[in-house]
Amino acid sequence: MGPGSDMYRQQILDHYKNPRNYGEIEDATFSHVGENPMCGDEIRIDVKLEDDEETIAGAAFRGDGCAISQAAASMFSQELRGKTLDELAEMDRDDVIDMLGVDISPMRVKCAVLAEKVAQDGADIYRGELDLEKTTTEEDSEDE
């Protein structure tokens, strides 16, 4: 093995090769899609809420793209379980980077946060706070 490759530690490669919660939830409470145009990553997330309409019972994702985006989606789908929508709304990119446990190079942060953004936008749309067909990571590239 050569130098570095810090971004591609075993955990990330494992989630990329064997994604958890890959697929769909048939009776999902809400679903949302997003893309990261830079890498051509696409992700769809299905979220099922508990009867309290606040706690996440489970999440699933489907997607296509680079290892960082897909591994992050896989890990994030596990993180979501048991969280409330308010807790989801409070998450930011540092939470995702902590979850991944590696340094993500600045150009690849958008890949890492795609799943989080899709889930957050999906929740906002569900709660009627946002009107959006598709999430894209491009907008926040401007203010980075």
Partner: peptide, 12 residues
């Protein structure tokens, strides 16, 4: 993925 490839070769 091409972006993963570019990230890895960047380490070289």
């Amino acid at each position: 993925h091409a972006h993963d490839l570019a990230s890895i070769v960047n380490d070289y």
